[in-house]
């Protein structure tokens, strides 16, 4: 049960990450590979505050999200001033540079990471508690993003992605809109990081490597980029199915590669069968 609940928490956190990533790349049309580092900023901020301050845990999680948001605004505002393509390069540099910094600073625990983050909730109720909290956050994220991308705001996002020049010449500030979308997405990732730190009580730099964005991107693409529930389906499938075989009691030397193979086969299968994603409709195949 404990194992299942942990997967549940992990799925909820990845639903938050993939949904917020989809907001940025799918809806916003912005290229970034820095999602893991904003996840890390939230995790480290919340973790450090939990260790060194006596602030309440929910506040620390929120502060983690806000730290990620502030960092993302600084990155996007400077990169988008140049051009949209520059954001991809800047995000890569930011991702690699900041993670390198985290690995080499003392107060972040260096390569060993941050250990002994206070648990806040203890005893038998701990895992169910985190399952509920992360689950509610995931639901709030998906519904919140849905509220953004439907209605007038979503219409403006679509117009910006369709034809940015015409959009701007109609009096819309595309750059500000991109920064807002980027900041919301990264802030959500940071919040997820805070919950992650509190739940696992241990974070290390290798959990936030740039390759994480490939995993999150796969969830988004597989589920359906630019759809509300696509990233949810993608996160659940790619986390749950490879782990389902852990109940077969295979030795670890076989288990790990098999999980990788299942992940890869799933991705290839769906890319052939549903190129627009599982949730993506045929309207995408215009």
């Amino acid at each position: 049960m404990e194992y299942l609940a942990t997967i549940g928490v992990l799925i909820a956190i990845y639903v938050i990450l993939s949904s917020s990533y989809d907001l940025i790349i799918g809806y916003g049309g912005l290229s970034t590979v820095a999602h893991p580092i904003f996840f890390a900023i939230g995790a480290y901020t919340a973790g450090l505050l939990a260790i060194h301050s006596s602030l309440p845990a929910p506040l620390n999680v929120i502060l983690g999200g806000m730290a990620a948001m502030v960092a993302s605004v600084l990155l996007a505002a400077s990169a988008l001033r140049v051009s949209g393509d520059y954001l991809l390069i800047a995000s890569l540099g930011f991702q690699l540079g900041l993670l390198q910094l985290i690995k080499n600073l003392d107060f972040t625990g260096g390569p060993g990471g941050l250990t002994a983050i206070p648990g806040t909730v203890t005893g038998a109720a701990r895992t169910p508690f985190f399952l509920v909290v992360s689950g509610l956050l995931a639901v709030a994220t998906v519904l919140g993003i849905r509220a953004i991308v439907t209605g007038p705001y979503g219409r403006a996002i679509t117009a910006m992605r369709d034809e940015e020049l015409a959009f701007t010449a109609l009096g819309r500030d595309a750059t500000s809109m991109k920064i807002v979308i980027f900041a919301i997405g990264c802030g959500i990732a940071g919040t997820a990081g805070g919950v992650y730190a509190y739940y696992f009580q241990y974070i290390s730099p290798d959990q936030f490597e740039v390759l994480q964005s490939a995993a999150i991107l796969t969830m988004v693409v597989l589920g359906g980029m630019g759809t509300t529930f696509g990233p949810v389906v993608g996160a659940i499938l790619l986390l749950a199915i490879p782990r389902a075989i852990t109940f077969l009691n295979l030795p670890p030397s076989i288990m790990a590669p098999t999980q990788g193979i299942i992940f890869t086969v799933l991705v290839l299968l769906f890319l052939f069968l549903r190129p627009a994603g599982i949730v993506g409709l045929s309207r995408k195949t215009l």
């Binding site: 953004i148 007038p152 403006a156 679509t158 117009a159 015409a166 959009f167």
Partner: peptide, 27 residues
Amino acid sequence: LLFRTMTVLENLLIAPRSYPGESILRV
């Protein structure tokens, strides 16, 4: 330079000079 994935009405709704629905705070 029409917005190609949108309907005719949606194309027009992007164009008024001020539009509170496009501010995330107002939304």
